[in-house]
Design a protein around this nucleic acid. Structure first.
Length: 279
DNA sequence: ATTAATGTTCAGAA
DNA sequence: TTTCTGAACATTAA
């Protein structure tokens, strides 16, 4: 689930408890599930991390980045169900990794919890981080992209706009849920060919991307029916109450009160939209 | 009881 | 080059 708003909520939630602290220990939680991907292997990972200080916590697209005093970057990718927690995990069964943090004032713990186990935790040198994550395969952040850049990228693709918004090399941070919500508020059909959008419509799309993501951050993300998404203190998000189309197939549109929300499959993913408001 | 579907990413193929 | 498909995994709804 975690898309840009949820990952931003994780970062803001753990920042005060993590920045400036020393990593005293990093341990594998003994859960019955098979281990998640950690790179490099455990032994070297722990050796390189232990004793370093967390200078800053940052978000890179849908990843959480701990910038260490050694210049290494500890990168957590929650994928579908990963959470960064300071306390109270939803269950102990799916706790995966614990970092024990300390400073002169005492100690506390940071956890990675992941029900499906598709998340990854990787340690990059400054050089690897620059080469693998900063250049090339991630596009500009969805909150930082300019209207002109977005227009240029739309012009260069014949794919439907919904698929383009999900392509992290084109624009980074938007996932399946927010793509549907954004296109609805922007009044654009998800099936529209990207390169057929006028400058005016792309400008509106750009403004809507920013508005929806910012509002979702203020609401601390969307906790869907399965209840997986929680902030660092194990509290639900509230943006699900604001959804206008996502997971509302067959229901009357909240915007025009006339159309019924449709669900279609695009690039193997569900897309929700209102055929009346979105053209 | 099977089967399909779920928020993500990436390798590999078309 | 661009775009699509399936797999990684655990759980739930149909």
């Amino acid at each position: 689930m975690p898309e840009l708003p949820e990952v931003e909520t994780m970062v803001r939630g753990i920042q005060p408890a993590v920045e400036g602290r020393i990593v005293e220990a990093m341990t594998k939680c003994r859960c019955s599930c098979r281990p998640i991907l950690v790179r490099p292997g455990w032994r070297r990972f722990v050796q390189r991390v232990r004793g370093s200080r967390v200078e800053r916590v940052e978000r890179l697209a849908k990843r959480v980045v701990l910038c260490l005093s050694t210049a290494d970057r500890l990168v957590i990718e929650p994928r579908m169900t990963g959470l960064m927690l300071l306390s109270d995990p939803p269950d102990r069964e799916h706790l995966r990794i614990c970092w024990k943090l300390a400073d002169s004032g005492g100690s506390n713990a940071l956890w990675f919890w992941d029900r499906r186990g598709l998340g990854t935790v990787q340690l990059y040198s400054a050089h690897e981080f620059e080469a693998d994550l900063c250049s090339g395969h991630l596009g500009p952040d969805a909150l930082a992209i300019t209207p002109a850049d977005l227009k240029h990228r739309c012009n260069g693709s014949r794919r439907p706009i919904k698929s383009l918004l999900l392509d992290q090399r084109t624009i980074a941070g938007i996932g399946n849920l927010y793509a549907s919500e954004i296109l609805h508020v922007a009044g654009i059909s998800p099936k529209t060919r990207s390169d057929s959008l006028s400058t005016t419509r792309v400008r509106r799309l750009h403004a809507t991307i920013y508005d929806i993501l910012e509002q979702a951050i203020r609401y601390e993300g969307s906790t869907l029916g399965d209840g997986t998404w929680r902030n660092a203190l194990n509290k639900s998000g509230r943006y699900q109450n604001e959804h206008r189309v996502y997971a509302r197939e067959g229901k009357v549109c909240r915007t025009c009160r006339r159309g019924r929300i449709r669900r279609i499959i695009q690039t193997q993913r569900s897309t929700f939209y209102c055929p009346v408001c979105q053209r």
